[in-house]
């Protein structure tokens, strides 16, 4: 028996499957995105803030929201970074290739930002305030990955 051997127990193939309910507000958004490439946000009846992704409750006003408004598809970069270190995606167990752009888009008409990838073919054009448009996936399945990324258009 080696005194210097540190015993490690590994989780191996253990994983936890989940079926997360999206909720009706989110379901409407994902279905519009999938079927019509439209971004549907929701507007607070009290403070008039336009939220994306849509959700049931305005946290600030504590009221239920049901007025859907179309926003985008174009917008501006609210803020961003360029990721240069790789990590394992816990959902797939695979590393995403780096570098890639990651940012928060202010879709035209929305008051909150939409998180997604940003195309960085020309890094010099990636800046706060740059105009962007979505690049849709060819096959859309009703997730936020129906958008591949946002690309700079000015």
């Amino acid at each position: 028996m080696s005194d210097t051997e540190h015993v490690i127990i590994e989780s191996g193939a253990a994983r936890q499957p989940f079926n997360y309910a999206v909720g009706l507000h989110g379901s409407r958004f994902l279905q519009e995105l999938r079927d019509h490439r439209r971004f549907m946000a929701v507007k607070c009846p009290r403070c008039a803030k336009v939220y994306i992704p849509p959700r049931r409750v305005c946290g600030a006003c504590f009221v239920e929201m049901d007025e859907f408004v179309e926003v985008g598809p174009q917008g501006t970069i609210g803020t961003f970074t360029i990721l240069r270190y790789a990590f394992i995606d816990p959902e797939t167990g695979v590393q995403k290739p780096v570098p890639y752009g990651y940012g928060f888009i202010r879709l035209d008409g929305a008051d909150t930002l939409f998180q997604h990838y940003i195309d960085i073919q020309d890094e010099s054009r990636v800046k706060i305030g740059a105009r962007v448009e979505p690049v849709f996936a060819d096959e859309r399945k009703g997730t936020v990955k129906d958008i591949r990324c946002f690309r700079i258009i000015d």
Binding site: E10, R15, F18, R28
Partner: peptide
């Protein structure tokens, strides 16, 4: 609206000392 379900998993590897 048809309610959607997002099928996913938590797949974080652990190595317990």
């Amino acid at each position: 609206i048809e309610p959607m379900v997002h099928h996913s998993q938590i797949n974080v590897p652990y190595t317990w000392w």
